[in-house]
Design a protein around this nucleic acid. Structure first.
Lengths: 285, 285
DNA sequence: ATTATTTACGTAATTTTACTACATATGGGG
DNA sequence: CCCCATATGTAGTAAAATTACGTAAATAAT
């Protein structure tokens, strides 16, 4: 885990710290934001320890010294590090749970950004570019993602549709053939019905692209799997962020698609955009 | 604009800088990451200017001094500052456009996280808690958001539905009354049809909640407006991130809702979660 | 229990870093 | 060509961080 959050690292290390180090840790955790701005002297005073104790504390956390520590702490605080991996609890107020939700989403996006396999993205764009037809399949929450994907990809002058009805999916899969792309979205990748359908399409020679988590049964029956591992959310209060990540991945694919089509294609997109103008009040974008 | 990215600010200010300041700017921009780690002396040397010039440069950008500047620069570099507000261009490869898309989404989320009005969130949760019925309305992309909202809120044992058919919406609005909540989602808030419908519902005494951008016509005809201003994306290649922000805002509302309902409600959510188990292979969460 | 030994912590000196005040230079307008 | 404004650098000062060292506390061994 390359990019662990300093605040969390300190919190986790708390039990193993000795007296003055713990004082420093508590002083920092009580107000991390202000810690990034203060000098070693003022922090030492606030924690009731000597300056070298603060310095030693910093070095314990793999930083070159106090300035370096402040820097890394500051970085940790961006994109809501304060709350990342900190669950919503029943005592939270709007002021506290709102940033928690945002931050946990941001955190997951950053995670996938850094771990997504670019060659797979490229391969998927390849398939989409060549496709005669594209079907987006998804159930439940993933159904909304599939619907959004349709809305995005139809702009590319490509026969595309989304489906959230398993019988419809099954029929379409059974009539699929080479040139058809079945883009199957499933967070768990374990829904039996969906796996069945993917298998049918695959057996008919169609291309099956899965947007799902790694080493899921769905991956196994797909031509290409865009494996996106969003950390499971065990917290009852916390939302499922996987669908958000999926949407962004689809944005990435759409971007790749547009770039591959080249600049001649842009006027077409512009035309679609403009088509909505008469439905709106006043001018915009 | 409170939280502009320092790297971009410097880039934009470049033309208006004088000679030595520009040298400093270029030295920083050529390797911002290393700039955050170096001392004022080494940076001055690298830019071929004196130390006070570097200091003056920092102050010009509304920072207290060099250390403060480094801090802010470091923060800017987190969550892909490299790319934020930097558009996708035709020469981008997968490796470069992928993080751009993620970062622009992350950036927008952070922006809204810091600017969202908590009291409005609270007020909306109030209304949802009291609602006899909730309708989620949205067209196009916002239709997918509405669909996702339905999927989220039906778990609360609340009569809820989503609609993306304007005739259906119109009929529902016309039969609405006090106790009914019409939750209208629209990025622009300018779609005539939607505004009409919101007005009808409102005139019938129903509560109209709008999730839209500020000072839009839709805001005017709503009981409560959750104003979320996602920066317009003028780039042809870049995706619309407003729908993602909307989804997260709905997550926030759902969280607020759950918390308001109290811990007695959690077993109900658990039961819904478990209901899907038989549809899947193997065990999970 | 008492001493030895390690570990923790603080004091003070040293070094590094940043800032300020001032001086010189550079360039544009009269 | 000189004056004034702005830009930049020099040198000194203050602040900050680090190191070296010494003392105190804690732990282990006898």
């Amino acid at each position: 885990m390359q990019h662990q959050n300093l605040v969390n690292v300190i919190t986790d290390a708390l039990p193993g710290l000795n007296k003055s180090e713990r004082k420093v840790a508590e002083a920092i955790l009580s107000d991390p934001e202000s810690a990034t701005g203060s000098s070693i002297a003022s922090l030492a005073k606030r924690a009731n320890v000597s300056e070298p104790s603060v310095n030693r504390f910093c070095k314990r956390f793999n930083t070159a010294g106090f300035p370096d520590f402040k820097l890394k702490l500051a970085k940790s605080l961006v994109s809501g590090v304060r709350f990342v991996n900190r669950n919503v609890d029943p005592n939270d107020t709007v002021e506290s749970y709102t940033p928690k939700i945002f931050d946990s989403t941001i955190n997951d996006l950053a995670l996938i950004r850094d771990s997504i396999d670019h060659s797979v993205v490229n391969a998927v764009v390849d398939q989409l570019i060549q496709a005669k037809r594209v079907y987006f399949f998804g159930l439940g929450t993933s159904g909304s993602v599939a619907r959004d994907a349709e809305n995005k990809f139809f702009r590319f002058n490509l026969p595309v549709s989304f489906h959230d009805d398993v019988l419809m999916m099954r029929m379409l899969a059974s009539t699929g053939s080479a040139g058809d792309v079945f883009f199957v979205i499933s967070h768990t990748g374990r829904t039996k019905e969906i796996i069945d359908i993917a298998e049918i399409a695959s057996n008919n020679g169609a291309t099956v692209i899965a947007l799902t988590s790694s080493s899921s049964p769905l991956t196994a029956v797909s031509s290409i799997a865009l494996e996106v591992d969003v950390p499971e959310n065990t917290d009852e209060y916390m939302a499922m962020t996987s669908r958000i990540v999926h949407l962004v991945v689809l944005d990435v694919l759409a971007t790749g698609f547009t770039l591959r089509r080249g600049p001649d294609f842009l006027p077409h997109l512009e035309r679609i955009k403009n088509s909505l103008k008469p439905t709106r009040y006043q001018s915009e974008d």
